[in-house]
Design a protein around this nucleic acid. Structure first.
Lengths: 206, 206
DNA sequence: GTATTCAGATACAGGATTGTATCTGAATAA
DNA sequence: TTATTCAGATACAATCCTGTATCTGAATAC
């Protein structure tokens, strides 16, 4: 069956965005040329300029769609998590889904961070994703502490900020010193933090 | 006074490396052309190729010198720290020295990380710096826990890994959601962690 | 003081990238 | 069916970047 014009156009945009994601991870936003992006998607440079004003607009669209997709993933992950699911199980599932492409995923994240660093007007697009993730973690931390019959020993937003920041930081350390950071390290660290926060609250109440 | 050839050459290399650092932070390793690097340093492209085989060799040299400089900074910082200095004071001093150029510093760090991601053979050069920093933090954590009359509730290397990773992660979060991460956040977080680790040990011994 | 060496400048050729302008064939509308 | 519109391909001019080859003047060696 032939595609309608609208369908065809959307399909082209989708392929161009997917191709760009790959190439941005491989060669960087600056290192990937329009021609390479179009070619890998199976199109000519003309098709690219017919669908995007330029690389900047493509990046913005990419960020928008990525944030939307991650929102859905987070909602799905938390939705299927009954209150009985451990926070560490959620993190484990989250990391498992990204395990195969970990370096590529990190590369793209760092590239987009740098792009946001140099184009402050798009920072909110990336920030939204961080807020969503942190909110989900805040809920998880609350539940975990409740399970340990402890109350948050500090602002829950600080606690989830710590765990969320830790994920990024450990990803980087795992890249640079793989011998010191295994698959278990993040979970070990989070478990340790939850235990010690529970301990701090327990001790504080005596 | 005229410079000797050797001095002159070293001076040129120094200026080229400094210029490259700036431009890498501003426009990325890929986005900065040899010509721009040479021009900002006050030289021609010929001078660049006379001193470096190409951009790759310059990056390697840059990494080598940066690691060396950071090693000295860490040693100096820890050296002047008598055992009476708090870990948080050291972190405060460390961050203070980088406060003015925080975004540029983060940009360069992320650029070099991405470069290492795509050139695995140079990862050890970046890794060495991470190990140095983590060792210094390990010492600090040990002292802080001792001050609280507690023993490390887990492998001290994991504890320092957490704090070190946290620094990176909070830097990123501070960029994306500045409202949620102030200057005090890192110190708040580290203080909280130290307190809760001490609590966990205390509780574990009862 | 003269010859030599070398740091850095200049010149040039080849290739890559960009953005636009124009062309073609299929999808829509009449 | 025929006319029109539009997605995508092709062609082109302009720019930028790279790497090398050659030139110049100052520092070293004799």
């Amino acid at each position: 069956m032939r595609l309608s014009r609208e369908q065809s156009r959307e399909e082209t945009r989708r392929k161009l965005l997917a191709s760009a994601s790959e190439l941005f991870a491989e060669r960087g936003v600056n290192g990937a040329s329009i021609e390479q992006i179009a070619e890998r998607a199976g199109y000519s440079r003309g098709a690219f300029y017919g669908n995007f004003d330029g690389k900047h607009e493509l990046v913005v669209e990419l960020l928008t769609r990525r944030t939307e997709r991650e929102r859905e993933e987070i909602i799905e992950l938390c939705g299927q998590a009954t209150s009985s699911a451990h926070l560490t199980d959620l993190l484990r599932a989250w990391h498992r889904d990204r395990a195969e492409h970990r370096e590529g995923w990190l590369a793209l994240r760092l590239e987009l961070l740098l792009y946001a660093l140099r184009n402050p007007e798009i920072r909110p697009l990336l920030a939204e994703r961080e807020l969503l993730a942190r909110e989900a973690i805040t809920d998880g931390v609350r539940r975990e502490l409740a399970r340990r019959e402890a109350r948050p020993p500090a602002d829950p937003n600080l606690l989830s900020m710590i765990i969320h920041a830790l994920e990024d930081g450990l990803l980087v350390q795992g890249l640079l010193t793989p011998d010191d950071v295994g698959d278990h390290t993040t979970l070990d660290a989070v478990t340790l933090l939850l235990d010690s926060w529970a301990a701090l609250d327990t001790l504080g109440r005596t």
